[in-house]
């Protein structure tokens, strides 16, 4: 095939794909700049008056945040995602440190025992967790969901921390020992500060996973729903919420992950490839 034709064809494919990729996003923007009344009265692709746009945006936002209670669920999800991100990182860092740099017997067995949690799909945990939390009086509480989210996040977090711990030279910890530093001190003063890259990867992955979770929220909560579960319920509610409000809520709920991924995209991809390295 001629080189020029080939090049042209390549760009054609890429441009067509780009249009498909951007189309739904643009069409959502067209929704959120309208008021609920304008959305019902105007043709879909007819834009509202420019001077109305700021007012519509604010009205939609307030209706989603307050009236549809997305605000409350947003805060819930912030609590869950930060707890899972930071909690699993701290717990996994302790475990990773001890498995690699302390004298735990049979470290590989311990690692597999914890990592095996990552092998099963979440569906395997749903029914028991529902039963346990009900029995413990933790159904529909933030504590209950935090325990679940942290627990689910630990195996992968440990995987990252353990791999990272191997890259830290043993000599540093031996030297600290000679200088009389206790194991805890070595953990706090040496391991923690040096394992920041592992923390970044764990935090991004687990924050995003928890933020995006729909299923656990659906089964384990009612009043303390995370934001994605709340959104799915809002959409399901028949004739309840105006489309402009629902879509505004969905966009607001996407802000944290958009910020996180756009600012830390490199670490995110790094986290993925970590599992493909020798």
């Amino acid at each position: 095939m001629d080189r020029a034709i080939k090049k042209g064809l390549t760009y054609l494919i890429l441009v067509v794909l780009s249009i498909i990729w951007v189309f739904p996003l643009v069409s959502m923007l067209v929704i959120v700049i309208k008021s609920p009344e304008e959305f019902n009265q105007l043709h879909y692709w007819k834009l509202p008056l420019i001077k109305n746009i700021p007012r519509n945006l604010i009205t939609n936002f307030l209706m989603a945040w307050r009236k549809s209670q997305i605000g409350k669920n947003f805060i819930n999800s912030l609590v869950y995602a930060f707890s899972a991100g930071i909690g699993s990182a701290i717990i996994a860092s302790l475990a990773g440190y001890s498995l690699v740099h302390l004298n735990v017997k049979k470290p590989h067995v311990w690692f597999l025992g914890i990592f095996i949690g990552n092998v099963f799909p979440f569906q395997m945990f749903l029914i028991p967790l529902y039963v346990f939390l009900n029995k413990l009086g933790l159904y529909d509480t933030r504590t209950g969901l935090i325990i679940v989210y942290v627990g689910i996040c630990i195996p992968f977090a440990l995987f990252v921390y353990r791999n990272y711990a191997y890259t830290l030279p043993k000599e540093i910890f031996d030297a600290a020992k000679v200088d009389g530093a206790s194991k805890w001190k070595a953990y706090l003063r040496i391991f923690m500060p040096m394992s920041k890259p592992a923390f970044t990867v764990v935090f991004i992955f687990q924050f995003i996973w928890t933020w995006n979770d729909l299923l656990f929220g659906l089964i384990l909560s009612e009043r303390y729903r995370p934001v994605m579960t709340a959104l799915s319920k809002l959409q399901g509610a028949r004739g309840g919420v105006p489309v402009t409000v629902l879509i505004t809520g969905a966009l607001v709920a996407s802000v944290p992950t958009i910020i996180l991924l756009l600012s830390l995209q490199k670490s995110f991809i790094r986290g993925f490839t970590l599992t493909a390295e020798k």
Binding site: A95, S98, I114, F125, G151, P155
Partner: peptide, 18 residues
């Protein structure tokens, strides 16, 4: 092994026992 205990407790509750 103390360093491992929190991880083990959480994984037991959330994953292994389930």
């Amino acid at each position: 092994t103390v360093f491992l205990i929190p991880a083990i407790i959480f994984v037991l509750i959330a994953e292994l026992v389930p």
